[in-house]
Design a protein around this nucleic acid. Structure first.
Lengths: 210, 210
DNA sequence: TTGCATTCCGGACCATAGTCCGCATCACGC
DNA sequence: GCGTGATGCGGACTATGGTCCGGAATGCAA
């Protein structure tokens, strides 16, 4: 059982970097159960798909009570988002410290396009898990993408309401729309990607490359 | 009990305009039950909100069996989408035959902006019902908006993959994103609208008006 | 009107998400 | 070690979406 990398126990992971005065430590059984749940859930998703992970089965296979799952993750969507955060960390590392053009070093426009393309691919790959997570990522994962795009837009000299422009640029990558276009309309991913590059180029005000 | 305006009985409303040869007429009890369900559901939504409409309660109040609801509408989301289609018809009438700038007569750019603004307002107004409908509208309602925007983009001389450009322009209006921005980030609707106008203007290649 | 084939109805039944509280387990101070 | 208060555990329980099939209502033809 490989321990999971997500922070343990605190309501807001961003505040969990240091144990704060007055905040008692996370109990060891809580941490152990959390890791067991995430590992078991990830394995079940990999083996049988997200829809096969019922809360009862997960509780049984992880040898914990059902209430423990809901205490830790709130609901099924929260659990799936936490499972997603495992691979999300690796994605973020590729963006922050990886090779250009996704990582630092490339010009901002190339990084923006690379980010969109990578997000498309990653979303398609995990689309069933993303849907089980309620059609979205964890708040942390979504905010990361938003901040990154906003930063790139600023570097590109885009004027306007950058937080909302970034959200609008990312909106066509959202899972419900993606699923409808891929599975109902049967559009090829390349076409979706090309159209997104077109839109992103129009928003930043350059003519699309490639 | 006012009869509901949605078409009755056929799987695909678009094909229900004429009774086709070989397709038997809709049975009168089926039509009656369908109307009763839609009226009762609309009333319950208006009085108590969408979340108060459970399938058991709806069946009891409409004096039909639960199975009947699922036969007609497939699932809860389908039912809510059908309820939404009642007001959606009025919205479509405003777009197709109403006053400019939403209706015909205004230049295409003004019509596009008016459409987005109207969709924002209408979505905010019915956001709980839209969420109960699974975060989206019926296929018919969504396709209508898509076709309208695509038509306006064509009139504006926009080049590119118009169906997907239209989808991208409409993506920031989708309910999950809208809800996150309004209720989690507490952004004012005016700011969302202004940012959308900015994005739409960039896509069509004009400087934003007002 | 009556008989017949078709379609639809209805509510018992199932699966699963989410709640609750008595009780076990833990961390800490002595 | 050991007592003690706090914290978390766990599984029985509830609520609700969705399924299924025996039987009734319907429409058509004679």
């Amino acid at each position: 059982m490989t321990p999971h990398s997500a922070p343990t126990g605190h309501p807001d992971p961003a505040l969990a970097l240091l144990p704060m005065a007055g905040t008692p430590r996370v109990r060891s059984d809580a941490a152990r159960n959390r890791d067991a749940l995430l590992c078991t859930a990830a394995r079940m998703v990999a083996e049988e798909g997200a829809s096969a992970v019922t809360m009862d089965r997960l509780a049984a296979e992880a040898c914990v009570g059902k209430g423990t799952i809901f205490r830790r993750f709130g609901n099924r969507a929260g659990l799936m988002a936490a499972v997603l955060d495992g691979s999300e960390a690796e994605f973020q590392a590729r963006v922050m410290r990886g090779e250009p053009p996704l990582g630092p070093g490339a010009p901002p426009y190339e990084r923006l396009i690379a980010f969109g393309v990578a997000r498309f691919q990653e979303s398609v790959q995990r689309i069933d898990l993303l849907e089980a997570a309620g059609g979205g990522r964890s708040h942390a994962a979504y905010s990361f993408g938003l901040l990154h795009v906003r930063h790139l837009l600023a570097e590109l000299g885009v004027e306007g309401d950058l937080p909302l422009l970034a959200a609008a640029v990312l909106a066509p990558l959202e899972v419900p729309l993606l699923r409808a276009q891929l599975e109902v309309q049967h559009l090829p991913l390349e076409r979706l990607t090309a159209a997104w590059i077109d839109v992103a180029s129009r928003v930043v005000g350059v003519s699309p490359t490639r």
